[in-house]
Amino acid sequence: MNILWDFDGTIFNTYPAYTKIVKEVLEDRVTEDEIYKLLKVSFSHALKYFNLTDEKEIYIRSRVRELKPDDLYPFPHVEDILKNANKNVIMTHKEREDVINILTFHRLEHYFVDMVAGDDGFPRKPDSASYKHLHDKHRIELAIGDRELDIIPAKQLGMKTCLFQNNTVGADFYLNDYKDFNSVIKL
């Protein structure tokens, strides 16, 4: 099976670290749970929702880039899926250098044959250009993401979709834990 993966919140559990950074800036204005829920829609959505100054937005984004690979953890059992797939590719809004550093630190880089990163010049999701690029090269059968934004382009291209830790209507499959992958995903 050839799989297209989102990165943040899908391969790596990055949102808790992002939530803490945003909470530092907002202090007691909002709970971590509220921040987390808004970040799961999208990082940009959360920052707009809180109506932050440009300076605070720049600060948050720079703090996120300063996170070390050992501050972020892959989800349990994700490596089992990666090693059993025929091909794995990534489509992320995160900068390429950051993704490579994190994957390398956690010894997961060898599982991926290709990537479109946020600094590669493609339009942002839900535009399907990056998905089409990866699909044309690798014949993707399944796209896995943690947000509706991650499956919209895949659906437009006729790929099967899976939402991870998200029950929004519209995906072909739903997973809350990667240990259940083989019992849930049937292509």
Rank of each mutant, 00 (worst) to 15 (best):
V169M: 14
G170F: 14
R139F: 12
D146C: 11
D98W: 06
L4D: 01
P16K: 10
D146Y: 09
Y73T: 15
T10N: 12
R29C: 06
E24M: 14
Y131H: 12
E34S: 15
E24W: 09
P76T: 13
S44N: 10
R147W: 03
E34F: 11
M159Q: 05
Q165R: 15
T19Q: 04
T14N: 12
E55S: 09
L67Y: 08
F105Q: 08
Q165L: 09
V99T: 02
I140F: 00
F105L: 06
K20S: 14
V113H: 14
N101H: 12
V116G: 13
K68F: 04
R29D: 04
D98E: 07
Y18I: 12
D150Q: 03
E79A: 11
D70S: 06
K48C: 12
S128E: 14
K179C: 03
K37V: 09
P74Q: 08
G158L: 03
D172K: 13
K68R: 15
P126L: 15
K83Q: 03
E66N: 15
D6L: 01
F122T: 07
V89T: 08
I3V: 08
I140G: 00
N167P: 10
I140V: 14
L26Q: 04
P126K: 06
R147Q: 12
P16F: 08
Y178C: 00
I3A: 05
Y73F: 14
S62A: 05
N13E: 09
E97P: 05
F173R: 07
T92Y: 04
S44Y: 05
N86S: 07
R65K: 15
K155I: 12
D150C: 12
G9L: 12
E55C: 06
L47G: 05
G118P: 09
Y111S: 00
N86V: 13
I3C: 01
E95S: 07
I152H: 02
E148T: 05
L149E: 14
Y178P: 00
F7Q: 02
E32L: 10
S42N: 11
D54Y: 05
Q165N: 15
S183M: 08
L82G: 00
K56D: 08
H93I: 01
E27W: 04
K160D: 08
E32Q: 13
N167F: 14
N167I: 13
